[in-house]
């Protein structure tokens, strides 16, 4: 078996133990950093990447139990393997460490052979976690990846109140026809980069991209304070970015992009749809259809951003909104109130 080596963080308030542990792991080919209490360790974990934590329990400022609790509550650190190395008394304390998520427990003075075996298995586990995370990251947004890691994977949805945003480049086909394919892809990439940035910076996720269209969700899987406000702010920001992009395009003698946004708030069914081997986080429901209809309606009324009454109610009273004529949308039996916001 090939021995794995890693970057370890040794947390111990006792100088002799720190020196001894550092030497022990360095002799096994690992790289070590040290922290003299839990508080310092948490700061170091926030600033740098480590493969395994070797944690003492009895420490001033922040003890090992508190460190384990803090790690458990942090999605980015939850999977970091922790080996508790301590001479703390009482079996109940060992049990408590394991319950709090420690991978393993080694009593002090630490036996080197035992340490080597435990480190190898922890490093292997860390590698698996990292690989899993990398794969998840490639196929899902960070929020969905975290939701998956926290709750496990299950096909099926739940009813939640969220805000759905649709946006689309108007007449993209006509616009791209005279362009070489490379230029079309480049334009789409620029557009998507801007859209992604605006959506994620307002707490939303992009969960569908088709051609030049994009669907984003606010309020699921991660809750946001006011999903309607977040979605409208994101749309306004995107609109401003498109304006900036257009200034560049005009200077280069290229046609301006026109982008429409439709926003609707209400109940959706959100969750993982697909099969066990290939699934996406998505949402469906009347709210989704309404957002899509509103987006299409922007062309007819010549407004950049349109939204429904439910979204309007959740915006501040001082928001510069305009109520437009009610519209009868396909798939909806009644007239729908339509609002727009001045940029």
């Amino acid at each position: 078996m090939v021995e794995k080596t890693g970057h370890l963080l040794i947390v111990d308030d006792n100088k002799v133990n720190r020196i001894l542990m550092t030497r022990s792991v360095e002799m096994l080919g690992h790289r070590a950093s040290v922290a003299h209490n839990g508080k310092v360790a948490m700061q170091m974990l926030a600033e740098d990447d480590y493969d395994v934590l070797l944690l003492d329990i009895e420490m001033p400022e922040m003890d090992g139990f508190q460190v384990l609790e803090a790690l458990k509550g942090d999605p980015t650190l939850r999977d970091l393997p922790v080996i508790v190395t301590s001479s703390v008394e009482g079996l109940e304390n060992v049990v408590r460490c394991i319950e709090l998520g420690a991978e393993d427990y080694i009593a002090k003075p630490v036996n080197k052979v035992l340490l080597q075996a435990r480190l190898n298995s922890s490093l292997e586990r860390k590698q698996l976690y990292d690989e899993q995370k990398r794969l998840l990251g490639r196929f899902a947004t960070e929020e969905v990846a975290q939701d998956l890691q926290a709750s496990g994977f299950a096909i099926g949805g739940s009813r939640i109140t969220a805000t759905v945003l649709f946006c689309d480049i108007r007449d993209f086909t006509a616009l791209s026809e005279p362009m070489p394919p490379e230029a079309t892809i480049e334009l789409l990439n620029t557009y998507y980069t801007l859209m992604f940035e605006a959506v994620t910076s307002h707490g939303g996720i992009v969960n569908l991209m088709v051609g030049d269209g994009l669907m984003a969700l606010f309020g699921a899987p991660q809750p946001v304070d006011n999903s309607a406000q977040s979605a409208i702010s994101a749309a306004q920001e995107m609109s401003r970015m498109i304006d900036m992009l257009n200034e560049e395009r005009t200077a280069l003698g290229e046609k301006r992009l026109k982008v429409g946004f439709g926003v609707a708030t209400g109940e959706v069914v959100a969750g993982y749809a697909g099969t066990q081997t290939r699934a996406t986080y998505t949402c469906i429901g009347k709210t989704v259809n309404l957002a899509a209809r509103l987006e299409a309606h922007t062309k007819i009324v010549d407004r950049a951003i349109l939204f429904d009454a439910e979204t309007r109610q959740n915006l501040s009273a001082s928001a510069d909104c305009e109520q437009l004529e009610e519209a009868l949308f396909k798939g909806f039996s009644e007239l729908t109130e339509v609002f727009s916001i001045r940029n």
């Binding site: 006792n14 420490m59 001033p60 001479s87 003075p109």
Partner: peptide, 28 residues
């Protein structure tokens, strides 16, 4: 009491590393 317990714990831990049996027992 916290510092008292922790200091004794540290002395115990180091005593064990060097085979100082009586010291480790008294510290414990």
């Amino acid at each position: 009491a916290d510092t008292y317990r922790r200091a004794a714990h540290s002395i115990k831990s180091n005593a064990q590393t060097f085979g100082a049996i009586t010291l480790s027992e008294r510290a414990r």
